[in-house]
Amino acid sequence: MSRDLIPLSLKDVSTFAKTLRAGLDQPPSHLEMLGLIARSAGYRNYQHMRARLASTPPSLVDEKAVQRAARHFDEAGDLARWPTRMRMQELCLWVIWSRLPAREVMTERGISTRIHALCSFRDAAQIRRGLVEHGLFTRATDGSEYLRVERAPTPDARALIARLFRRP
């Protein structure tokens, strides 16, 4: 027998706990009930749950921004034109970042060659500069070495990458 997952979202866990307690014959105290709810959700206790959820911003995706950024790519997923707006540039750079190798030191010529393979237009210098300015790559002071910075893409960037590289 398979179990279906049913997502549960609560605006106020305290009200939920009070309502749940009202239906029990011998209910635990309100604080004990909050602790039980938190542990059932995978947290150590109620304070742990509050701290973790407060530090996690909502991961809402700006679909319009993703849609606009996707227009800058061709059918093959290559960057067709450089966006003028900084926000769009950042989203497009995340796509380039995702297609460049991790933990591999590259020379200026090596990264330029790879960028040219990912873009329909030939302006690797602008892309390299953008990758460094947005903190997606580090560059040696003399510009001889480039290294991808490993960090999680933003929710919008993840959505754009997924949209461009869906497998049919």
Rank of each mutant, 00 (worst) to 15 (best):
I111M: 00
R87F: 12
T138W: 08
D142K: 10
L20C: 01
I115K: 03
G110Q: 10
A159V: 00
Q67D: 07
R21I: 02
T15I: 07
R21T: 02
W82D: 12
R148W: 05
R129K: 14
L5S: 12
L118Y: 05
E63P: 05
S29K: 11
L53M: 13
G23S: 07
P27G: 02
F73C: 09
R99A: 05
D142M: 06
R148E: 00
Q26K: 14
E104M: 10
A17V: 05
S2K: 13
A51L: 15
R87W: 12
R21E: 02
R129C: 08
W97A: 05
R44A: 14
D12C: 08
S2L: 15
S98Q: 05
R166G: 08
I6Y: 12
I111Q: 01
R158M: 10
E108C: 14
A125C: 02
S98L: 00
R167E: 00
R167G: 01
E104V: 11
I96C: 06
H48D: 14
E150D: 09
A51W: 14
M1C: 09
L93V: 00
V149G: 04
R103C: 12
A22K: 15
D78S: 13
A117V: 08
R81G: 10
S55Y: 09
R148T: 01
W82C: 13
L60N: 12
L131G: 04
R109Q: 13
G35K: 06
C92V: 03
R50K: 13
E108P: 10
G130Y: 01
M106A: 05
E75S: 14
D78R: 15
Q126M: 14
T56R: 14
L31C: 10
T56S: 12
R148M: 03
R148I: 01
R3C: 07
L91D: 00
P57W: 04
L91H: 04
R87A: 13
S55H: 15
S2M: 13
A117H: 11
A17W: 04
R81W: 10
F165V: 10
F121K: 06
E63N: 13
I127H: 03
M49S: 03
Y146T: 00
H72G: 04
G110I: 03
Q26L: 12
L136E: 00
F165R: 15
T113I: 09
K64L: 11
A65H: 03
A117R: 14
R163H: 11
S120W: 09
R129H: 10
F73H: 09
R85E: 12
L5P: 06
T56L: 14
L160K: 08
A76E: 15
I115V: 04
E108Q: 15
A22Q: 13
I115A: 02
A162V: 01
E150M: 08
C92N: 06
